[in-house]
């Protein structure tokens, strides 16, 4: 084992110390991170492939998978459009309050998931701000799909923006100015110059946004009402099955989410290795 860049013996640790440190760290990570991941798949398949497949083809499980995909299919594109617009406004122009705006965009990350759900109950719930009006017009938001979409959109709001803002900041405005001076209009400049420059950054943001959208539990749990077959997402279905002591089925659904996490990590790392110069995240932000 060597140090990553050449270092003389005086400015790195002796080999035995390096090996020892690596061994200790790997052991801790194996117990803390890898073991829980392994347990998900082992518990899911413990009763055999038949039980596993039966759990996944259960109508309630299928409807949970479907709802999770619908919610992500709405929330993720919304936050992509928002992320691109916010990054464009913040990085291409100077205006007062810019750093405040950047801070506010990050705000949902520092709000507890349960509180994220609660705020929508306070607005749309039966005893909430708009509750009486919604009931009078028989519009359902809380304990229905719109509430789940709102809560999910809230918790995943910063992902694309916070990847694109540092990236577009570092790319500057020279490419866009060149395109405009050559006669391109605003939309042409965006589609043909800006978007190709930021495509890997957008994809990176989409990956993280999607993983969280499909896996969000706390916020969605508060607004969902847990109605089987109607307002149950995959993470909520995992909880219901677990609380019914149906562990095999619970871990079976959980294994799909764990698989999604693994695919996300793999794709994210692949992007970081191949396109690090075209990502803000690849440069240690």
């Amino acid at each position: 084992m060597t140090a990553r860049s050449f270092r003389g013996p005086a400015v790195t640790e002796p080999p035995w110390a390096r090996w020892l440190l690596v061994a200790v760290v790997l052991t801790i990570l194996a117990i803390l991170l890898v073991l829980p991941l392994a347990v998900v798949f082992i518990e899911a398949l413990k009763r055999g492939a038949g039980v596993y497949l039966a759990a996944l083809s259960d109508p309630d499980a299928l409807s949970a998978v479907k709802l999770t995909m619908i919610v992500a299919a709405i929330s993720v594109p919304l936050n992509v459009v928002f992320g691109i617009a916010a990054a464009w406004a913040v990085t291409k122009f100077r205006f007062p309050g810019k750093s405040l705006l950047t801070t506010l965009i990050d705000l949902p990350f520092s709000v507890s998931p349960v509180v994220a759900g609660l705020i929508f109950v306070l607005v749309f719930g039966a005893r909430g701000w708009l509750g009486p009006w919604l009931r009078a017009n028989s519009i359902e938001i809380i304990f229905a799909v719109p509430g789940i979409v709102l809560a999910t959109t809230f918790v995943t709001l910063p992902f694309v923006a916070r990847e694109l803002i540092p990236l577009m900041e570092s790319q500057g405005v020279a490419d866009e100015e060149a395109a405009l001076s050559l006669g391109a209009n605003g939309w042409q400049t965006f589609w043909r110059v800006t978007l190709p420059n930021i495509r890997w950054g957008v994809l990176y943001g989409v990956l993280l946004c999607n993983a969280r959208a499909m896996g969000e539990f706390g916020a969605v749990s508060v607004v969902s009402g847990h109605i089987r077959g109607l307002t149950n997402t995959m993470p909520l279905h995992v909880e219901i099955l677990y609380n019914e002591y149906n562990f095999a089925a619970s871990f079976a659904v959980a294994s799909l989410l764990a698989l999604l996490a693994l695919i996300t990590l793999f794709a994210k790392s692949a992007l970081e290795w191949r396109y690090s110069s075209e990502l803000a995240a690849g440069r240690g932000h």
Binding site: P113, G215, A261
Partner: peptide, 8 residues
């Protein structure tokens, strides 16, 4: 831990 849903 960022990627794995918290319930899982």
């Amino acid at each position: 831990p960022f990627a794995l849903p918290t319930a899982v």
